[in-house]
Design a protein around this nucleic acid. Structure first.
Lengths: 386, 386
DNA sequence: GGACTTACTTTTGGTGCGAAACAATTGCTG
DNA sequence: CAGCAATTGTTTCGCACCAAAAGTAAGTCC
C-alpha cells in the first residue's frame, strides 16, 4: 500500500458513507458513527477496518478529554489523515485564475492567483501547470486537481462551451493532466460549488437542498436525495428567462424583469448608471442605498423584493430544507435582508415551514475550493456519477 | 403501524417492486421483469415464487399469441389476480359523496354517488357505510376502502381539519371501519390523486414528477425519488399565496394576482361576473371565450398566461420529468392551450428540456379512484410510512 | 429428428447486515 | 483493592439478498 497516492478507492457504499461522515464531521468514534448512520456496532468494525488499513482513516488519541469523564471503555475516535494528501482547486475567470490548496477536509491551506492574459487552451493549461508547480513546492503531496469554469462541461473533463473563454470542446482535463501528471476533474463552477456545499457546507446531509448564486450572473443548483440534478441549460444564461416581475427593469443582459436584470451585479450597476449617470461599484451602491440615496435604494429594494419572490417560489415548489445564497452579489442581504424576508413571507402560506435561508458571501477562492472538493469527491471517494 | 392487516403477507422490498410492476404494467414474463427491474433471471424465480403461492400473482396462458411466433421456450407471463379483491374509493365533497369500485389494477368497475345532506361525522360515516353495503352487493369481495377528503389528514386516519366540512380531529377511518369491518385509509384528496398518478398514471416510474390541480382550489403535489413530499400547508389554501402576477386580478378567495385568483373556477366565474354582470358556468365561459366574447376571452387568456408562468416556474426550479395538470379546471387548456405553451416558452431557456406537460380532465370519480389506489397501496403492498 | 433458441430453475458463492456473545477499559462502590 | 456497572469495540453466526453459472424445459427451424 503506497500511501499518499490514490491507492484508496474503490469504496463500497457503506465504506463511502463512513468515510464521508468522518471527512465532514470531524473525528468520530465507531459507536457515534453507528448511531449517525443507523448501522450496528458490528458493521462499523467491519467497515472501518479496511479504511484504516488503506490509510484513509486513523485512530486518534481521544482529543475530547475535557470534562468528558464518562464511565466505561473510552471511545476511540477515527479521523481522516487530513494531510495525507492535498488537493488543488482552480477557478478560471475571464482575466484571472484563482488557485487554492486544500486538505482532505477542504480546509484551504494556501492561495495563489495569477492573471490570465490569453484564452488559448494550451496556454491556459500552461498557466495552470505553472501554478501547480508553484504550489507543489510547499505542498508536495498533491493528490489531484479540480478546475471550475463558467460554462458547459461534459464528462467532468471537456469544456463543451464557455462563452467568456470562447472555448468549444476543449479537453481541459487532458491538457492539464499531461502537464502535471496529476488526475484532473473539470466541472462547471456552479456545479462544483453546489457539490462542495452539499458535502461540506450548508447542504450537509440534507435531502432537498438548493443553491442560488448571484454574481456576474445567476447560478442555480438543485440537490435531491443528496445528488445534484443536472440540467441542460445550466450556466447557459437561464437567469435571463426567469421572469420575476414582468413590469420590472430591462437591462442589456436580461429580459425585462428577469432575475438577471434585477439581481446580478452588472445589472444593478447598469440600472444605477442609467438612472443617475454615475458609475459606481456594487459595494458603493449598497453603501449609498444604506445611506439613503433614493435611486440606489430603489434599485436595491427592487432587487431585494425580486430575491424574496424568487426564494419564496423555490420554497413553494421545491420545498427544500435549506436554500443557500452564495456568490459575490449577496451583499444585498446585509442592506435589504429585511425586505427579502418580508417578501418571502408575503409569498408563502403562514403555516408553511419557514425557509431555511443561509447566506454566504463567497469570493473566487470559495469557487476554487468548490472545485477542489469535487476533486476530493471524485478521486478519493470514487463517487463519479453522472 | 406499518403492518397492513390484509390477508396478504408483508412483502420484502424486492417482492414489492415485482408486485407493483406487474400491477401497473399488465402481465409480464419473468424475463421481462428481470430486464425492467435490473435483476437477474434467478432472482425473479425466487421473488415470484412466494407471490404466486400467496395468490397475488398467477401465471396466465400467454395472451399475446398474435404474430408473436418467436423461437425458443415460450414465456410464461405473470399477472395479478385482478378480481381477487375489489377496492372502494370515496371522494367526499361538500354536498356529495362519490364512490367507485376498482380492481386491484385500479380499473373502475362500478360507480355509486349519493348526496350529502349533513356534515355530522357519524352521519357521514353512516352514508359511507350505506354506500359500501350497496356496492358490496355486486362486488362481494371488497378488500379495503380509501377515502379522499379535502383538508388536512393525519396518519391516514384522522381528518385534522377540513374547512368545508367544518371538521376538526375526526377519526374518520375508525368510524368507517366500525361500520363496515373493512380496513380504511383516509387521505387528503390531492395527496391520494398524486399517489395514484405516481403509481398507475402519468407519473409511473418517474423520479421527479409534479401534479398541479385546478378546480375549486389549487392543488400541488411533488414526487421526488418516487415518493410524494408532504408539506405543512397542503390543502390549506397555499394557492392564495402563490403570487403569479402582482398586478393581476383580486378575488374574494385569493390575494391579488395569486394562483387562486387567476385560475380557480370560482375566481374565473367571479371575474367574469364582476366584469359583465352575467353569471356563467365555467364551461360557458370557456365557450364564450372560444367564440370571441372579449371579456371572457380576456379572463381566460390571463388565466392561461398565469398557468404558463406557473408551469414554467415549476419546470425551472423543480425540473420534473413530467407535470400533470388535473382537476375540473383544466378545460382551459382546450381553449387557450396555445397561450399556455407560448407563456411557458417565454419563461424557459431555449436549451432547456421541453416541459413534459400532460393534461387530464378529471371528474370526481377520478378523485375517488385516487383514494382507492391509495387503499391498494397501503393495504395490499404494505407501503405505509410517514 | 437433431440443432438451435429462449425461458425458467437450481445451485453456488459472495456481500452486507444485525444479533448476540465476548473482550477491553474505564469509573464507582464497598 | 476486588468486584461491579457502564460503555466501547470485536468476533462469530446466521439471515436476506443477489448474481453467475450450470442445468432443465419447451418450443422453432431445417
Amino acid at each position: 500500500m503506497t500511501e499518499g497516492t490514490a491507492g484508496w478507492l474503490p469504496l463500497s457504499a457503506g465504506e463511502r458513507s463512513v468515510a464521508i461522515d468522518v471527512l465532514v464531521h470531524g473525528p468520530l468514534s465507531r459507536t457515534e458513527l453507528a448511531r449517525r448512520l443507523g448501522l450496528s456496532a458490528g458493521s462499523l468494525t467491519r467497515l472501518t477496518k479496511p479504511l484504516i488499513e488503506s490509510g484513509l482513516l486513523v485512530e486518534v488519541p481521544e482529543a475530547d478529554a475535557p470534562a468528558e469523564s464518562r464511565q466505561g471503555r473510552p471511545s476511540q475516535p477515527l479521523d481522516v489523515v487530513a494531510d495525507s494528501g492535498f488537493f488543488l482547486g482552480f477557478k478560471i475567470t475571464e482575466d484571472m485564475v484563482y488557485g487554492v490548496v486544500t486538505t482532505l477536509r477542504s480546509h484551504i491551506v494556501a492561495r495563489h492567483d495569477r492573471p490570465l492574459t490569453t484564452h488559448d487552451p494550451a496556454e491556459v493549461a500552461d498557466v495552470l501547470a505553472g501554478m501547480t508547480a508553484e504550489l507543489a513546492k510547499r505542498h508536495p503531496r498533491l493528490a489531484g486537481i479540480g478546475i471550475g469554469v463558467g460554462g458547459f462541461v461534459q464528462d467532468r473533463a471537456v469544456v463543451g462551451e464557455s462563452p467568456f473563454l470562447l472555448w468549444r470542446d476543449v479537453p481541459l482535463a487532458d491538457l492539464v493532466e499531461e502537464r502535471t501528471g496529476l488526475p484532473v476533474v473539470v466541472e462547471n463552477d456552479v456545479a462544483a460549488l453546489v457539490e462542495a456545499e452539499t458535502w461540506f457546507g450548508a447542504g450537509r446531509g440534507l435531502d432537498r437542498f438548493v443553491v442560488l448564486t448571484i454574481g456576474a450572473g445567476i447560478g442555480y443548483g438543485l440537490v435531491l436525495g443528496g445528488k445534484r440534478v443536472p440540467f441542460a441549460e445550466e450556466d447557459r444564461g437561464f437567469g435571463r428567462h426567469w421572469i420575476v416581475d414582468s413590469s420590472g427593469p430591462l437591462t442589456p443582459d436580461g429580459r425585462r424583469g428577469s432575475a438577471v436584470s434585477l439581481l446580478t451585479i452588472p445589472s444593478i450597476r447598469y440600472q444605477v448608471r442609467a438612472a443617475t449617470g454615475g458609475d459606481h461599484t456594487y459595494e458603493e451602491i449598497l453603501a449609498l442605498a444604506a445611506a439613503g440615496d433614493p435611486m440606489s435604494a430603489r434599485v436595491v429594494e427592487e432587487a431585494a423584493r425580486a430575491l424574496g419572490a424568487l426564494v419564496a417560489q423555490i420554497s413553494n415548489f421545491v420545498m427544500p430544507q435549506k436554500i443557500l445564497l452564495a456568490g459575490e452579489g449577496v451583499g444585498l442581504m446585509d442592506v435589504a435582508g429585511k425586505t427579502v424576508e418580508e417578501t418571502i413571507r408575503e409569498h408563502r402560506h403562514p403555516l408553511a415551514a419557514p425557509v431555511g435561508l443561509e447566506t454566504k458571501v463567497s469570493d473566487f477562492h470559495d469557487w476554487a475550493r468548490g472545485a477542489a472538493v469535487l476533486a476530493i469527491k471524485v478521486l478519493v471517494l470514487g463517487s463519479a456519477e453522472a
